[in-house]
Structures are given as C-alpha cells and as structure tokens.
Nucleic acid binder design. Structure first.
Ligand SMILES: Nc1ncnc2c1ncn2[C@H]1C[C@H](O)[C@@H](COP(=O)(O)OP(=O)(O)OP(=O)(O)O)O1
Ligand SMILES: Nc1ncnc2c1ncn2[C@H]1C[C@H](O)[C@@H](COP(=O)(O)OP(=O)(O)OP(=O)(O)O)O1
Ligand SMILES: [Mg+2]
Ligand SMILES: [Mg+2]
Ligand SMILES: [Mg+2]
Ligand SMILES: [Mg+2]
Lengths: 635, 635
DNA sequence: AGTCAGAAA
DNA sequence: TACTTTTCTGACT
DNA sequence: CTACACAAC
DNA sequence: TACTGTTGTGTAG
C-alpha cells in the first residue's frame, strides 16, 4: 500500500527569491479568466487557476465519483498546481480516502446534493420554458437601478491585503531551513496551510497531513505556533493602520483598507504604488510577503488579492467597462460567498461565469430567495459594498474538540463527561478573557460517522460560572445519550451565544410558565407613549429621512400636484427600479414564507450564497483559536 | 347590590311574526353606512348598527376606561340595540365586571395595546411626514393591477346564508313559549347566543349569563342542545345543496354558495328571487329564518348577509360603482378578519371606513406586512375571493375545560391530574371519531388571572392511545408545575395537531439525535433524478403554465425581438403592477425578515388582520363541540 | 418548531 | 356563585 | 427560537 | 494511526 503511493513531481524547480521584489504586479485589461491568470503570472512558482470553464450545464453528466473527487479536493480555487496535475491529485486523494467514515459521509452528502440539484435543474428547465418577459423586465430595471446607484456613489479605492501562505511563512521565518522544502503547518491529522513549495504537490489548507504525505512524501509538517502568528499579525496591522487607520481586519493575515483618503493626502502617489509600498513595508517589518487586490469595492478587491498571489498585486480600475470585462469571465466560485455547493448548483444551471450569472438573473429571480437574487444582481455587475465598519460585536464564543471515538458508557463519571468538562473549562477561560456573558448554551456533537448535531438551551439569565456552563452542557448531553445510548462520538463542542450586549435590552425568550404569572411591568399608564421599558430599537425603527422634494429615483426636483408627481415617479420607477427589489420602498414586518415557492427541492434547500460576514476589528479572529492555546490540529 | 341593578327596557314592543315573510329585502344604492342600515331596516325588531364614524384619528383621546368599556362589549358590530342604549349597556357591563380577575386581565391587555398603538401612531406620524411619492406610486400601480385582474375575472354570484340567532331559534322551535321572551342559550357562566328579544337589552353572544341578567333580569337562560343544532344544520345544508351542490359550510348556521350556475340553469330567475326562495325553503323545512347576502365575492356576501338581519337579505350588484359606494362607507370592523384590536389600530391611525383604508394604503404599505397590505388592498377595492373549496383538511383537534380554581398540589394523583385525564379521555374519543392521527400534543393552561400559555411537544410517531396522549400531556403539565409550583389554573386543554394527512409525506421534525444516526435512505443512486422518497409536493412546485405569447399584463399579443418585448412589458408594468406585490413574478424561497422594519412596536405586534380561514365542508364545525357532548357553557 | 395574540361562530 | 369552546391565521423568536 | 447546511480563514 | 477549530450567515420549521 504505502510502497505503491504515487506522488507528483513539481513541474519545474523554480527559484524562490528571498528578497522582496515587486514582481507580480498587474493591471486588468483583457478577455478570458483562465488565459488571463496565466498571462499575469510572471513567477514560475505560481499558477493560479480555476476549474476549466465548461460548455454548458453540468452535473447531469457528472458521475457520482466525479463529484466526489471534486468534493474531496476541498479548496479547488486555491493556488498551486497546473491543470494537468489536477486529475492525478484528485485520483490520489480519492484512493487514499475511499472507504473511510469521512469518505462515506462525504459520499452521502454528495448523493443528497445530487438529488436536490437534479430537482433544481428540472425546475430551471420548466422555468426557462415559461414566458419570462415580466421577470426579464423586472431584472432589467433592477439592474439599471443598481448600476445607477453604484455610479452615483463616490468612488473609493479599496485594498485587500492577504499574507502569502501565512502560517507557513511565519514558520519559515522562524526556521529558514524550511523555506526551500515542501512544508505544511498543522498536524498529521489536519493541515492549516502549506508553503508554495508544497502546494506544487497539491497540498492545501484543510487537507489531512497523512493525505498530503501521499501527494508529497517528503512533506515536512510543522506544528502550529498561534502566538507567533498573532504577534506577526499585529505588526502587519500596524502597517495597515498607516494607510487606513480605520482598516478592517478580516483575519489574522488579511485586512481590508480604504486608501482613498491616503491617496488624496499623498498627491504624487497612485494606488498601485501605494500598495506596493505597503507590501514592501510589511516585508521590511516582518520579512513576509503579502499579496493585494485594489478595486472599487470589497468584493472585487478580495477577488483581486488572489489574482497575483503570491507576492503580487492587482489593480482593477473602477472604470465600468474594465470592471465588466473582469467580472464577465470571473468564475462564480471566485466570488466570496459562493462555496463549493453553490458552485455546483450554479454550474448545474449552466452558470459558470459571472456573466452567466447576469444572463440568468430572471431564472435566479424566480428560483431563489430575494436575498440570493440581490446578491447575484450585485455580483453580476461587479457592485459591492465599500463600508469598512470598525465596530463589531461578537455574537458567540465556542470551543470544540475532536477525539478518538467515545461511546456513552454509563452515567456521569464517564470519559465522555470528562472530555466535556475539559471543553467547558477551556471555554469558560475564553469567556472570561473575552469578558462576555451569554444566555444560550449550544452543545455540538459529531458522531464517528461524521454526523453533526447541535442542541441549544437558552437560559433565563447569563451563565454565571464554569460549573453552570458544564451543568447545562452535561444536561443536554445526557438527554442526547438517553435518546441514543449507542451513540459514539468523535467531537464535542460547547458554544455560548445570546451574548450580553446583544441580549441585554430584550431578553432572549426562556421557557417556563412562571414569567407569565409574575409580571411586574405594564400598569395602566393610559395613553402615554413614553418608552418606559425595553426596545429602544423601536424608536430607531423609523429613520427620519430628510423630506427632500426631489424624485428619489432620478434625482430631479419635483413640483406640481400629486397627480403630476405620480406620473413622473411612475415613469421613473419604470426604467429605474423595481421598488421592492431595490428596497426603495420596503415592507414593514417580515414575510414569513413565499406564497408560491417556485423552486423547492425538499425541506432544506441545497446550497445558498453566504453574504459578507461582519468581522471583528480588534481581538480574536476566525483563524485564531481563542487564547492562543496550543489546540493544534488533530495530531 | 342585586337590588340596585339597572336594566334596560326595550325601546318598543314589536311583534314577532311567526310566519315566514320576505321582508327585509334590500338592494344597495346609496351613501352613508349608518344611515343606510337604518333606512334598510323595515322591521322594528331590528336595528343593526355599527360604532358611529368618528371624525379623525382616535385612541389618543380615548381614555383607559373608555377603551375598556368597548373592550368588554365584546361583539360591538352585532345586531340588537340603538346607539342611545349603548352607553348605558356599556356602563352596566363595566360596573358588573369591575374588579374581577377577568376585568383585570382585560385591563392589562388594554394597557399593553394602548402603549403599542401609541407607538404605531407616532410612527405613522413620522411616515406621513415623509416623502411617500414612491409608495403612492407603488400603491397606485398595485391598485390598478388588482382592479384590472378583478374585472378580468368572470363574474360570479356568491351568497352567504346565515341563520338568525341560530341556537336560540332552535330552542324556540323546540319550546315555542320562549319565542316572545328575552332568552339566551348557554349557561349562567357564558352565553352562546340570544334571541332578538334579548338582544334589545344588550344581551349578546359571548356574554356571561350573570352579566346578561344585569341587563335583563327576566332573561331566560336555556342550556345547549348541540345535537339539535347539528340536526337542523343538516337540513339547512340540504337546502344549500339544491342551489349549489358544491357549497361551503362555514359553520353550523352558515353557508357560502356560488349560485352562478343555478341562475344560468334557471333563466327566469334573478339572484334575489332565488335567494328568497332558498330562505323560504329553509323556513319550510326547519321553521327557522335565515338572512343572506348576495354579492360578487365571499367577503362582500358575508358583509351583506349581516346587513338586513334578521330574516332579511341584501343584494350588492357587481357593478364596480355600486361596490365602490358600498365599500367606501363600510366601517373596517365589518370586514371579516378585522377584529376589535385591529379596528382600534386602524382607528388610531384615522382609518374608520374602507375608503380611509384605501386612502391610507401607502402608510399601510410602509407600516405593516406584505400580507397585511395585500389584505387591505383587496378590501379597499371590494375585491375578494370567490373560491369555495369543498375539500378541506382539518389541522387540529382539541378539547379544553374551564373549572373552579385548581392549584398544583403534590404529584400525580391530584385533582388537576384527574381533570387533565378527563380532558384527555374526551379528546381521545373525538380523535377516534374523527379518525385522525397526530404527532403534536399541545397543553393549554389558563391561570386564574386569565393568563394563557400553551406548551407543545412533537413526537416522533403518531399518538397511539389515550394513555400515551395523557402521558405526554401530563409530562408537559408536570414540567410547568415544576417551573411554577404556586400556579393556580382555571382551564386546561389538550390539542392534537401535526395530523396524519398533513404530516404524512414529510414527517414533522422530532427531537433526538437518534434519527441522524440510523438513516436507511439515500444510497448513492448516482445522478438519478427519480423522486424515490418524500416530497411529492416539490414536483408540483412548478406550475406548468401555458407558454402564451401574450403580454401577461395588458393581454396583447406580443411579437418581435426581446428588446421590443422588454420595452412593451416595461411600459405595461409601469401602469399595471408592481410585480412583487401583485405576485406576477414571485420570489422563490421565503424572505425571513424585512431588512427595514419600519413599524415596530415591540417584540410582538399589536393586532393584525386574519385572513379567511379554510373551513371544513362536512363534519365538525367551530361552533359545534366535537361529538355533540353536552359540554355546555360553564354552568 | 414553539409561543402568543387575534379572529370567528 | 363569578367571563366558553373549537379551529385557524399571523407574527415573532 | 432551534437545527442544520454552507462559507471563510 | 486515520479529515480541525472558530465564527457567522441563510433557510426552514
Ligand atoms: N481551513 C482552515 N482551517 C484552519 N486554519 C486555516 C484554514 N484555512 C486557512 N487557515 C489559516 C492558515 C492560513 O495560513 C491562514 C490564512 O489563510 P489564507 O489566507 O486563506 O491562506 P494562506 O495565507 O495560508 O495562503 P494564501 O493566502 O497565500 O493563499 O489561516
Ligand atoms: N362566541 C361564541 N361562542 C360559542 N358559540 C358561539 C359564539 N358565537 C356564536 N356561537 C354559536 C351560537 C350561534 O347561534 C351560532 C351562530 O353564530 P352567529 O351566526 O354569529 O350568531 P347567531 O346565529 O346566533 O345570530 P345572528 O346570526 O342572527 O346574528 O354559533
Ligand atoms: Mg493568506
Ligand atoms: Mg486570508
Ligand atoms: Mg347566525
Ligand atoms: Mg353564523
């Protein structure tokens, strides 16, 4: 078995220059994505690519094992390998995984997705056969309105800076011998990232170390050093702050900056030069390289930051024509928020590029949710938010651990309970350090078959102690054990949410009849509209918009009687916007469910887009386990 | 105390003719609602009225005791008394109720409503100060589209027939001595209805008997005889079936018929004559009088059926002008679905009539939910559904009992548990008779302070036995007792839902991790799109609409390229409809919450409209306790 | 899904 | 002595 | 609210 | 031997 392992040789032995050099700088100019990425590649160690564009709708012709292979190759849009190698890599991973509980679990998910996607396809076929002129018209108007809106907004220069192979580069810094060798950071069970040398072999983030070793037997696996990453990240952020004191830290190795003001303050400097210097400054201070994307909004900047990785940057001017050319050939999977599942759904519908997206907007309008449609609308025009909100409230703190299979033996003093207690203790530590309070305790379980469950309990008051935290979690666990005594687990996790700042004004509901019996509040009070208790938000509910006398659509000043105004606004409305879709006007309270669910593939949908996550500017980041504990990947 | 009771004398001793006579027949023709109802009254025993139209927004000037009085007068839109008497009646009721736990409870609700309504008013003020031209335009277009749609639909003649003082009339039938005396049906604790003689004194449905006696000391209170009402209802329905074999039974004493076909089949007959004969036939067969409304849709027919009650009928021709005149002066409270709370909300917003409703549609659009807006849209145009679906699936079966205060004493063998067991036994009987199966058990509790709670538990399988039913209910009860040991109850109820026919194809979710571990289904299956399991509904999700080549808005036949069509449809769209509001196009999956909740008066809204309830055609009805048990009102 | 208010006969 | 019973919808969480 | 799938680093 | 940990969003019940 082991002796038979095939592994890939890197295509060419390229030299890694240790010195910082402003290579890989590019500006957008041309036609096809694939071709473009290859063109813009000036360093042979690179080779960004994406799945080859297909001719038409996929997934009908995709076999089960095909989709499994691409499912197992978790990060298909990441950098590192030539297309020719992909098949070989996939094959190796597939063979190495085949038969494992993980594989079986993936296979099951895949099968479910396949069924649901088939339904989507069938429904899309029917919808496409329908008369979609109304939908096309609505879409047309929504597009115009959005475009107008986007053009009206003052242009900003947004930069996304992302460190190259961050953890790996930090490890190389601390142990330069690693530099020239294929190396990954993490454990034999799971890698967090790999240096570019290793990526040539197909080694990727979120790949188990032992699989990576099949692809690259020489691979060095270095354990994690969170404190180092945090320390270096802090240095990098100092540099960010020079260019935009209000920058938004997206993760330890990534920042979003609005350098509009910086550029205005430094007249002789253009965006590309500024960002080059920024990256150079990072290199000077840390010895690490970063890549960057420069564009008119966050989404485009983010996509661009990947374009000339590593140690490169890309500038996409805000010129609508260039944006359009860029977006048109951009594979949907590159768009942040479109993951592997949603990519499959889109592909099955014949949607590969963002142009396809735009051309299929009427279909999307009918098949998916409003939010989904609006997402696609914006993406297909290359429109995105430029807001970098520094403030952000954390919504949850959690801790979870994977361990060797445990079954529910006996009652309280079992290994499982001991493990839960460990987790609880650790989490409580984090809670203390974060200084948060929360009312909802969620227990997460993963069976040895990789089935995930969560069970939550919302308390009437904030969790006060580690003991209470554990007691609640244990109680939930015991309930689950009672419901399934034969259950064997590979992971448990506890998370605390309904946090103080969020749950403060209006308490999260808690069960029990008691609260209905003893109600201190609400004595007669007559017609007094004073906001005595709770819900200050209600006050802010009505935005006191300035009562302008201009048409809210075309901006012209309006005069005359209502009749005339109605005429004008109506006409404007026609070619400007479909109000409920572009949110000019808005419904009051929420609508529960669509009355006519056109697309329905079962109780749960298959795939959806995920809009931008609000991120914390300061403290903890997604990729930094709380308290920098040596949690390490499963070793 | 008792000696001091004031009571009202009837305004005039009118003769109740025992013979059937087609008096009280009227056709709509004129201006103001109040005036009209008085005009159309030909029988002195009548006096339908509604609250006098106010000049402007109410509720700001309404005192707490004012709103309490009207709250206590539960059925203010029902027939029986002159306006002059109202104040006296209210006063008596108020005095009789004052200080009771019930009164206190109503007072609390009233206070809460007052606060919330004040917020609505404040928000309405802000919204009205805003620039609403866009909203007005949207509303305008929605109105046109709806009107067009309504005019395009083939006209139908819908009749609503409702028996006069039904239970009371049946009792009079069985005991003619009662006829000339003020009499009510029910118990001293609660009356179900009263004859018209009693109504002169202010006695109403849903009024406690002992309060009714304060209004009318001579009042005779007759116990309920459900089997009689059911038997007579069956006879009445036979008559309905003659005129429309597909009629929809709304309750024991009420039916909705579509006599379009009947009229076509009987050329010499007009609608009014036909309905007269129908009512005469009912009288011949039962000896009871009925009233009827004839109009172009269910909503209007229902309103009309009340217009010339008792023993009268009213015809509202489908002529849009006449409909408009009728609707314009119709108080919103008359509209089925607008209850006393929503009336208060509307009134506070300055909305009294349906015309006010129409004129405030932009406000309603911004303040309330989409469904609420659409409801108002339709009502304000007098548009309504004409569908009489014979089929209907029951969604729940329940049983509840009020009793003398019980507190949670000790454990299992307590009086409370005994009472619950009784209820469970009774309910199980009903379940058996109805032949239904259900998975969700809901326990309902009412404290002696009239606070309502429900606690539900959804099981993994259908409830199999009375024992199981009780076990579940008891378990829920015990949980609640544990949470509040000092709780004292005045009512308990059990209800079973998630019924077989509804829950069959896709099982209601049930807790426990077990079901995630053992999943028999979903083996690979490759790309096979066959609908092996569940969700046949998904198949029906896409309606295969005929691919017509006509403009879906103006109906014109469209030719030429997409460009031209887009132009045309866009223009049509402008003055035809706001698509997402009139549902021409529709979003796929539901939208969770409005992104901008303009109107928000707290966690819970205050009041909302309630759209037409789907009713059962055959078996049990809302006003007939299951199995015709002598449940009787609290005696 | 569960809870509560509102609605109707 | 002392304010129902049954069913269903809408909105929130 | 609860549960789960999806997404990102 | 044997596929992570943390956070947040979208959808449905
Ligand atoms: N799936 C994951 N699980 C845990 N940690 C991760 C995961 N993916 C990434 N990380 C950590 C390690 C990475 O070095 C760091 C930054 O991620 P990311 O920027 O996406 O990749 P990278 O910096 O390693 O390579 P590059 O940016 O050059 O593609 O976050
Ligand atoms: N609140 C109630 N609780 C219990 N039963 C009721 C209630 N209201 C009405 N019923 C029963 C008794 C009624 O006779 C029967 C039909 O109701 P409904 O048609 O509204 O009134 P009614 O037939 O008694 O008088 P009328 O129709 O002449 O106004 O339903
Ligand atoms: Mg990076
Ligand atoms: Mg990153
Ligand atoms: Mg009646
Ligand atoms: Mg009735």
């Amino acid at each position: 078995m082991q002796g038979e392992e095939r592994h890939l040789l890197p295509g060419a032995d390229s030299d890694d220059d240790e010195d910082f050099d402003l290579d890989n700088t590019d500006q957008w100019d041309a036609s096809d994505w694939q071709a473009l990425e290859e063109l813009s590649t000036t360093d042979p160690t690179q080779g960004l690519q994406c799945p080859p564009p297909h001719a038409g709708p996929q997934d009908a012709s995709v076999t089960a094992s095909d989709s499994m292979k691409s499912r197992l190759l978790i990060n298909p849009n990441k950098a590192g390998t030539q297309n020719a190698d992909r098949a070989k890599i996939q094959e190796i991973i597939y063979e190495a995984s085949k038969g494992s509980p993980f594989f079986l679990s993936e296979q099951r998910k895949d099968a479910e997705a396949t069924v649901k996607i088939a339904k989507y396809v069938a429904q899309a076929k029917e919808i496409r056969a329908m008369d979609l002129r109304v939908e096309r018209s609505v879409v047309h108007q929504a597009l115009s309105a959005l475009q107008r809106e986007a053009e009206a907004a003052e242009p900003r220069t947004i930069v996304c800076v992302d460190m190259d192979a961050f953890y790996a580069s930090v490890e190389e810094l601390d142990n330069p011998e690693l530099k020239s060798k294929p190396m990954a950071v993490g454990g034999i069970g799971m890698l967090c990232t790999a240096n570019y040398e290793a990526r040539k072999y197909g080694v990727r983030s979120a790949m188990p170390g032992y699989i990576a070793r099949k692809l690259c037997p020489q691979l060095l696996i270095v354990p994690l050093h969170f404190d180092r990453y945090g320390a270096i990240s802090a240095v990098v952020r100092e540099v960010f702050a020079i260019y935009d004191p209000n920058f938004s830290a997206f993760s330890l190795d990534e920042g979003l900056l609005d350098i509009t003001k910086y550029l205005a303050d430094h007249p002789g400097l253009n965006a590309e030069e500024a960002v080059s210097r920024l990256r150079e400054e990072i290199f000077k201070r840390t010895g690490l390289t970063a890549s960057a994307g420069i564009a008119g909004n966050k989404m485009l900047a983010k996509v661009c930051s990947d374009f000339n990785k590593p140690n490169g940057q890309m500038f996409l001017p805000s010129d609508p024509v260039k944006v359009r050319l860029f977006i048109d050939v951009l594979p949907v999977r590159k768009v942040p928020g479109v993951g592997k599942v949603q990519e499959r759904v889109f592909n099955a519908l014949g949607i590969e590029s963002c142009r396809d997206l735009r051309e299929n907007l009427p279909l999307i309008y009918k098949m998916f949710s409003k939010i989904h449609f609006q997402f696609c609308l914006r993406v297909s025009l290359g429109v995105g938010s430029t807001e970098l909100d520094s403030s952000h409230q954390r919504k949850s703190v959690g801790c979870e651990r994977t361990f060797r299979a445990l079954s529910a033996s006996g009652k309280a003093p079992s290994p499982m309970h001991a493990k839960l207690k460990e987790i609880s203790t650790h989490l409580w530590d984090d809670i203390q350090n974060q200084g948060v309070k929360g009312k909802r305790v969620t227990l997460k379980l993963k069976t040895t078959a990789f089935r995930l469950t969560t069970r939550a309990r919302t308390l009437e008051s904030f969790v006060r102690s580690e003991e209470e935290l554990y007691r609640v979690a244990e109680s939930i666990l015991d309930t689950e054990i009672a419901a399934n005594p034969s259950m064997t687990l590979r992971l448990m996790g506890i998370s605390l949410s309904a946090l103080s700042s969020l749950a403060s004004s209006s308490d999260p509901a808690s069960p029990g009849i008691s609260r209905y019996l003893k109600r201190p509040k609400t004595q007669p009070k007559d017609g007094d509209a004073s906001n005595d208790d709770e819900n200050d938000e209600a006050q802010a509910g009505v935005q006191t918009l300035g009562t302008t006398s201009t048409c809210p659509i075309c901006g012209k000043i309006l005069e005359g009687d209502q009749r005339a105004m109605d005429e004008h606004v109506g006409r404007c409305l026609d070619d400007a916007e479909s109000p409920s879709l572009v949110e000019a006007a808005s419904t009051g309270r929420g609508k529960k469910k669509a009355e006519l669910t056109t697309a329905n593939v079962g109780k749960k949908p298959c795939g959806h887009i995920t809009t931008e996550k609000k991120v914390e500017n300061g403290g903890g980041a997604a990729d930094l386990p709380n308290l920098r504990r040596k949690v390490a990947a499963a070793s």
